[in-house]
């Protein structure tokens, strides 16, 4: 279809402000970071830039960085699995067991925390998980034996904080795909004598898969690059992950080129994850 000249002017006028802004504040910065990652040191003292691969080499040579990336990927997997295992039944109950106004209200309640301040939510867990904190005292009051529960500054604390932050994503995407699932399919299978396990495995999960996978990606990607939860809930000992090491390069060590290289390696992991799941995600959109 050929476009009239005035249409082209109109398209350009409407679209270019938004995309120029995105270019100036996202795409150019990402390019600048790629450029920085190949510099030996930041060129802020006026010296000529020296190109080198040393920061990528450092990632390959030093087991510290590789180990931390692996640790962050594992953390991403653990949190994603927990979110799916908890989120799927939750979405099922919302989509198939509750009707009318209640469903709308409960759905809103589930996704509301997700749009509140993430920092504040992480901080609220710190109050709960502290040794001699509210959770320990609460359990002490209910249970007949003495519990000693100091989860603060531990790996489980980081996992709890992250699950709390990202669970609503999985519930939201799974709920949307379950809502599109026709109940008569389940009834048909049931009347033909299929057991619940078979129905779940052969009908529900395949049809809900795009939504579940979309949710899983939305959890995994930010968790691999998380900084806040490890810092506040993991502390010094349990809170060192790939993301916090990148942050250190920018705020404490001031080795920006190394930070840029580590960021780009993380971006590669993220893009690989998105590319692997892209066919599924496209299905989820339609």
């Amino acid at each position: 279809m050929a476009l009239a000249r005035r249409d082209i002017v109109q398209i350009a006028g409407l679209i270019s402000p938004a995309y120029l802004w995105l270019t100036a504040a996202v795409f150019l910065p990402l390019s600048a970071m790629l450029y920085f990652s190949f510099l030996s040191s930041a060129p802020f003292d006026g010296s000529a830039p020296v190109f080198s691969l040393e920061h990528y080499q450092a990632f390959l040579d030093r087991p510290l960085y590789r180990g931390l990336l692996w640790k962050s990927i594992q953390l991403g997997l653990v949190v994603t699995v927990i979110c799916v295992l908890v989120g799927f039944p939750c979405a099922w109950v919302l989509a198939k067991m509750i009707r009318g106004r209640w469903r709308e209200a409960l759905f809103l309640l589930v996704i509301l925390p997700f749009w509140t301040n993430s920092l504040v939510r992480v901080f609220s867990w710190a109050i709960l998980l502290r040794g001699n904190g509210i959770l320990e005292r609460g359990l002490d009051a209910v249970l007949p034996f003495d519990v000693s529960l100091n989860l603060m500054f531990s790996y489980p604390a980081v996992v709890i904080g992250l699950v709390h932050s990202y669970l609503p994503y999985v519930i939201l995407t799974t709920y949307l795909s379950l809502q599109a699932l026709d109940d008569s399919l389940i009834e048909a299978a049931r009347s033909l004598g299929a057991r619940w396990g078979t129905i779940l495995w052969r009908i529900i999960l395949p049809l809900a898969a795009p939504g579940i996978i979309a949710g899983a990606v939305l959890v995994f990607v930010p968790v691999v690059g998380s900084v806040l939860e490890p810092r506040i809930l993991g502390g010094r000992a349990a809170g060192t992950f790939y993301g916090t090491v990148i942050e250190d390069q920018f705020t404490a060590v001031f080795n920006w080129p190394l930070g840029a290289a580590l960021s780009f390696i993380l971006l590669a992991v993220v893009l690989a994850c998105l590319a692997l799941t892209a066919p599924m995600l496209r299905k989820a959109q339609t």
């Binding site: 995309y19 970071m33 990607v221 930010p222 998380s226 993301g243 942050e247 920018f250 920006w256 840029a260």
Partner: peptide, 21 residues
């Protein structure tokens, strides 16, 4: 092109902005 700003972890976008700005 709308997806990178949403999908890329904020840590990466934030540090890239810092470098560029």
């Amino acid at each position: 092109l709308l997806f990178p700003p949403i999908a890329i972890p904020w840590l990466i976008t934030g540090t890239a902005m810092l470098i560029f700005f």
